[in-house]
Every structure is written in structure tokens, then in C-alpha cells.
Design a protein around this nucleic acid. Structure first.
Lengths: 188, 188, 188, 188
DNA sequence: GATGAATGAGGCTTCATTCAT
DNA sequence: CATGAATGAAGCCTCATTCAT
């Protein structure tokens, strides 16, 4: 009888590992509890359904992701907007590379008819704010901040995915390439 | 006893409608044959497995998509690279808006652990070629054509998704916004 | 691949036997298909849920029951109302004795919040008609035909149950006792 | 930490309410403790199993029921047998109407293969005694006291059920109708 | 006394696929 | 060609009960 948090965490981690390894559908609740080393009832003590773990994983992922980037940004002088963008890009790429497998599985493989998830919205809001501040301070001009944020975010995803797929998974190189690309968008 | 093609088409269309409405997993072969108005055995006459329909749907979607854009490009003078890009963008956005629901379901919901599908590769190749030609003709310069193609393509997807989600699904307005954005990337 | 009716019947009979022997709750769908000698899927080919068999059993029971009594009554001169009541009583008691186990299980053990089932209503209507005709022909008088029908029907059930429980399960003797009792109700 | 009796009573009442509302099977021990506002362990302090509550509920119901009728009868002169029967009828109908939902659930829905419960036997014995005394005193004659008691008791149940179902749940009117009916049985 | 986390056996149901007609 | 009855493996989930705190 450990504290509830420990169990929940064990179960979520076990689930994440299996989802990554075998996919969501192929992973059974049995697999999860076996790997977590608890009884099946325990799973349902903490999660109402199998879907629930996925949702919890999503939230945990987003929370971690957003926090990591926010922490990095906090280290950055508030008025050097280009540096802030570079920091955002670096943090985002690194966080994504570190966990893209879980990201894939949890955000793409499982979509219960929610095209634009709350989670993505948070990330977009974070980037939009950064871009908006830069625009306000005339570090760059942007006719449509939100569209730019989305294009940059999804563009980043695509390029990183491609880098991973083609084996060029080095965060530094990817960031350089993306900086060049997105630098063109962030002009006066 | 209609010609086989008609049957196949009926089944694919029924499947597509159901996949969009209920998702792939929730759609059973029973649902499909019922909507198509044929017996269950007929399904297995034309498709080896349920997966097969999805694959067929993917191919049909890609074929249509690529063809539509290629046709539009064919109308365009080969040396006006900016116009060609505008044409590509317009065609792509329109085709995507017209069928994004099927696109979602068939390309995202079903991923047999294939991060970069053959189909996406074709589209990227098409755009890369266009961008490469423009670069070669000095219409613009591009340090990394493939990265630019991917970023533009995925960026476009994200912005269109957002436009649809927020109810601004007008192709013209979206293209204008995207032209402004991507125009910045395509500079000398 | 036998005709559908055969399978349905096999399954219903197997279910009935098991319900009687072990009770509804204790009987699993597995038990049923095993006894019926079919695959588990076959069960769900014909019945949507386990409850469905119970409902089907109810209807079959009622249909048989009503028909048996109606047939017996058809043999009876339409104007000898006392004889008709005796016939009804005899038929009802016999049919009930022959199948009270199934009756118990199917009508009492399983009640999905339906106090007065459609099935009972049919039987009551049948008896009410008989009593009403007798009253109209002055074979007896009855201030409240429906109440009398219900009291007689449920009273019969109770007495037969008691006879069965105490081992006096002889239909003839039971009918004699009941005739005496109910004869008092059916007076001018 | 209330006195044990209070706890037991809270649990029984919670259970009764839920059994009535959702049925016995559908009611979980969790539901019960939640409604009672106690921990799950507490339930098992006072009841060995879930069945135990049902049994306890049965006994409480029967005790209350029998007592109520016995009290009413005690007010009645011992030699006015018709009045005594009328009192019995009135008390029984009223008690039943007041609690028929619990009665249903506790006596019908849960039957551990006990067709004739000990509890019913008590009630029948009570009525049999009353009828027997009347017969001995020549207030009426009865060839089979037990059969009459059962028929009257079950007949009463049926008629009251019907009255409730058809919305004529007035105890007075029901008793009038039943008096007329059963009065015919209780003749010299 | 009171709690509620932990359990695990076992039930119901789904559904892709086959194949005799 | 077309059908749909038959299958059975496999999954999700329930819930009464226990027991360490």
C-alpha cells in the first residue's frame, strides 16, 4: 500500500513504455499491470478506463514540455527577443526529440475526434506570446501572429520528424537549419 | 451484379464515410457492408483485410490530391516560379480543405508505426522539386530545400487545421495569410 | 450452418435448462454455448445480450402457455361458463406445474424494473374475458372483474407453489381445492 | 463514531434505497458505503457479505410488517372474526403499499433458490391462524384453511400491485374491493 | 473501530475472418 | 459472384472481499 501517486506513476510509466513499444491498440491493460507489477484491479482503482491513462499521459507530457520551455525562457533576458525565440526553438526541439515517440503515440495514435487538443493550444499560446512580444518591441513584424506560431510549430515538428526518420537526429544541426528557415519569417 | 469497380468504390466510400463519422477502430466491417448494401462476404472478395481498405483509401486520396495539384501546375508557365508556388499553395489548401476529415482519419488515426508515409513523401517531393527549380532559377534562395518543403507543407496543414477549427475555413483568406508567411521564406 | 431457427431454439433450450439448474446469475454465456454445442460468437449472432435470451424465453413461455389454455377453451362449449372456468383452471394449473421452474426463473429472478410485465397482462386479459362473459350471461356476478381475475390468478400461483413446496404436486387434487375456493367467488 | 446500531441502520437504509432505485445486482457495496457516508471497511464490520444486508433487510421488513398487523389485531375484540379479518386486510394492504418497492426487491429479486421463504411462512401462519379461529367459531367455514390463506395473501398482492401500476393506489378503495372479493370466500 | 488501497478471478461482449451454400 | 451464418480468440471491465494502517 504505497501512496497513491507512486502507483499512478508506475502505471503511467509502464503504459507509456508499452504504448511506445507496441502501439496503443496492441497494448492491453494486462500488459500494463504486469509491467507495473500490480494487480489488474489496481489499474481500475486509479483509471476509469484504458483511455484514461492516455489522457493522463497527454497531460503529463504537456505539463513537462511546457514547463521545460518556460524554465529555459525564464533564464533569458526579456528584451532580447531573437534570443528568446532561439531559446524556445532549442528547448522545443530538444524536448520533442527526447520524447517524440511518446508524443507520437499519445497525440496522434489516439484521437477521440479532438482535432485541436487543449494541449497543443497551450504550446501555441506560449509561442504566440513570445512572437507577439517581439512584434510589439519591433524585433520583427508579423501580420498574423497566430498563423506564424502554428506554422512554425508544425513546421518544426515536420522537420524534426524528417530528421529523425532520415537519421539526422542531432538537435544542434536541426536547430541551425530551422533558425535559418524561421529567421526569414521573423523579419522587420 | 454491378461491375466490380462499382462495388469496390461503394465499399470504399462507405468505409470512408464511417471512418470519418466514427473513427477507424469504431467502424466494423459489418458497418461498412451494411452501409454499402452488400453482404459481408463481398467485402472479402475485394479486400483481403480491413486494413486493406484504409490503404486503398490512402492511395486514392493521394492520387487525387497529387493529380489535382499537378494539373493546376501544368497550367502554369514553367518559368514563373512564384506563380507556380502560389498555384501549388492554392491547390493544396483547397484539396486539403475539401477532404481534411478523410485525410485525418486515414493518415493519422491509422499508423502502422510508419512515421513518414510513402504518400507524404510524394507530396514533399513534388513541392521540393518546385522549390528546387525556383532556387536554381534564382527566383529565391534556399539553404535547405527539403527542410523548407516540409516546414511549408506541415505549416500549411497546421494553419488550415486551425482555420477550420476556429471556423475561418475560407480557402482564399487562408491562402492570403499563408502567402504572406511563406513569401518571407522564399526570398533571395 | 443450420437454419437460424434451429440454432435459436437450441440456445434457448440450453439457456432454460441452465437457468433452472443454476439460476440466471450463475449461468454464464459460456455455459450456454457449451451446452448448446456452438461457438460463443454464435450466441451473439442471435442474441444481442444475455438478457435477450431471458426475454425471448419469457415470450416463448407465455406464447406456449396462452396457446395451451386457449386451445383447451376452444374445445369447451361457449355457453357453459362454469365448465369454461374449470377448463381454464385445469389448463393453467397443469401448464404451470409443468413449467413452474422456468416460470420462476424467467419471471421472478429477472426483473428489470418491470413490475407488471406485458406477458402477465395477456394472461389476465384472457381470464378477465372469460369471467366477464360469465358475468354477462349471469352465470355469476362480479363487481370487479379485473380484480377477481388477478386475485384468482395470483392466488392460484401461490397455492400451486405451496403444493409443490410441500410435495403435494398433484394437479387434480390442487384443482379440486382451488375449484372449491374460487367457486365461492363465482356466485350470483 | 456513532453507536453501532446507527451505523448498521444507515447502511441498511442506504442499501434499501439503492436496491429500490437500481436493483440488487446493479448496486455495489461501493454505492452503499458511499451513500451511507462510511468507508468500505465499515460495511464489512457489520455485514459479513453483501447478501447479509439483503437478509437483514428481509428480516427487518418482516418484523415491522408482522408487528404492525399484530398490533392492529390486538386492538380488535378476539371474537369478532370478520372485524379481525378486515383489520388484517387493512393493515396488510397499508403496510404493503407503504413498502412494496422494498418488498419487491428484497423478496423477489433475490431468491437463493428458496421458493417459499421463512418470512412468507410467518405471514401465512398469522393469517391462517386468524382464518382458523374464525372457522372454529363458525364465523365461516373453510375446507382448506392454508390454501385460503395463501390465495388471499397472494391475491391481495396481485390486486395491490395492479392498483399501484394503474395508479389507483388508494388503500381504502383497494380494501373495499378486496373485502367484497374475499368476503365471498369467507362464507358459512 | 474505521478506513480505503489492493486484489484477481471471471464475466460479457466484440469483431475480423472463414467457408459452405 | 454473392451471401451471411458460424467462429473463438482476446479484450475490457466489474466488484466482492481482504488487510495493513
Amino acid at each position: 500500500m504505497l501512496p497513491a501517486e507512486v502507483r499512478v506513476d508506475d502505471l503511467m510509466t509502464a503504459a507509456a513504455d508499452l504504448f511506445i513499444a507496441k502501439g496503443i491498440e496492441a497494448t492491453t491493460v494486462n500488459d500494463i499491470v504486469e509491467l507495473a507489477g500490480v494487480g489488474k484491479g489496481t489499474f481500475y482503482h486509479y483509471f476509469a478506463t484504458k483511455e484514461d491513462v492516455i489522457l493522463a499521459l497527454r497531460e503529463r507530457f504537456s505539463r513537462d514540455f511546457t514547463k521545460k520551455v518556460a524554465d529555459a525562457l525564464a533564464q533569458c533576458p526579456g528584451d532580447d527577443h531573437r534570443a528568446r525565440f532561439a531559446t524556445w526553438l532549442r528547448g522545443t526541439v530538444e524536448a520533442y526529440i527526447a520524447n517524440y515517440e511518446l508524443h507520437d503515440v499519445v497525440f496522434h495514435e489516439f484521437r477521440h475526434s479532438n482535432r485541436n487538443s487543449k494541449e497543443k493550444e497551450i504550446v501555441i499560446a506560449q509561442l504566440s506570446a513570445l512572437l507577439g512580444e517581439g512584434a510589439k518591441a519591433d524585433a520583427w513584424s508579423l501580420p498574423d501572429v497566430r498563423a506564424a506560431a502554428i506554422a512554425i510549430y508544425d513546421g518544426m515538428h515536420g522537420v524534426v520528424d524528417d530528421a529523425i526518420a532520415t537519421g539526422n537526429g542531432d538537435a544542434g544541426a536541426i536547430c541551425d537549419r530551422l533558425s535559418l528557415l524561421f529567421g526569414r519569417i521573423l523579419v522587420a
